[in-house]
Design a protein around this nucleic acid. Structure first.
Length: 221
DNA sequence: GCGACAG
DNA sequence: ATCTTGTCGC
């Protein structure tokens, strides 16, 4: 698939902040997706050689049946360290490499990490969505920022994730009795719709099938 | 100044 | 993310 827009990759946090504050204005948190959704993609990252090499895996599944349609893998030198709040600068370059090889353009992409549930409202899912001009959802396994009330143990329950008085996402129980997922709009999708798709992509396990498939690819090397 | 901190 | 065996619980 094609990349909608590019920008130079920063080497310092100061430069990264400038990019985040500039691109965040392009983020759309209302539903602007092509429905019915026929293909959903998941991305996962891995690292090799002490983290000096980044490995990105992409899996495109049919929707709603969640069958694997296509996969791709890409490697490239790691060029940015892991710094909370700047994850996208470390992972997106390799992810774009992997996505460029995909022939089946997905209608929606589920990312590992936050969407707008970020200090500057521009987590990795939003960043990727804006660069691709495509609907994306942030599905994180742990909290970056925000507060929320405890939620019931059964699947389907969720609570608003709040930061500075704003609802920035949701804490969602994707499976009964397990730790919740932190879901937020990435780009071109509302929170309510994002929650709906995440639930439809987690029929059996805590993590979406998309990221689980991508994860296996990245690990099988 | 003191913690918190996606993967 | 990554290093790693057994173990607890449904």
């Amino acid at each position: 698939m094609k990349i909608y827009q590019h920008h130079a990759w920063p080497s310092t946090v100061e430069e990264a902040i400038v990019i985040q504050e500039q691109l965040r204005n392009q983020v759309i948190t209302s539903d602007k997706l092509q429905e019915p959704v026929q293909y959903v993609a998941g991305v996962d990252m891995g690292f090799e050689a002490d983290g000096t090499i980044s490995r990105a895996a992409v899996a495109v599944l049919s929707f709603p049946d969640l069958q694997v349609i296509e996969t791709s893998l890409a490697h490239r030198p790691t060029s940015f360290p892991y710094i909370p709040g700047f994850l996208s600068f470390r992972e997106i370059p390799a992810v774009l490499d992997a996505l460029e090889k995909i022939k089946t353009t997905p209608d929606l992409i589920l990312c590992d990490g936050q969407g707008i549930a970020h200090p500057r409202r521009f987590g990795i899912a939003s960043h990727l969505g804006v660069l691709l001009d495509m609907p994306t959802i942030g599905v994180a396994k742990s909290l970056l920022i925000g507060k929320y009330e405890e939620l019931p143990e059964t699947r389907g329950n969720w609570r608003s994730l709040i930061h500075k008085g704003e609802i920035i996402g949701a804490v969602l129980r994707s499976r009964t009795g397990v730790k919740p997922l932190y879901v937020s709009s990435g780009h071109r999708i509302s929170l309510a719709t994002a929650i709906d798709y995440v639930l439809r992509c987690t029929p059996k396990y805590r993590l979406p099938e998309t990221t689980r498939i991508a994860d296996k690819l990245a690990s099988a090397r």
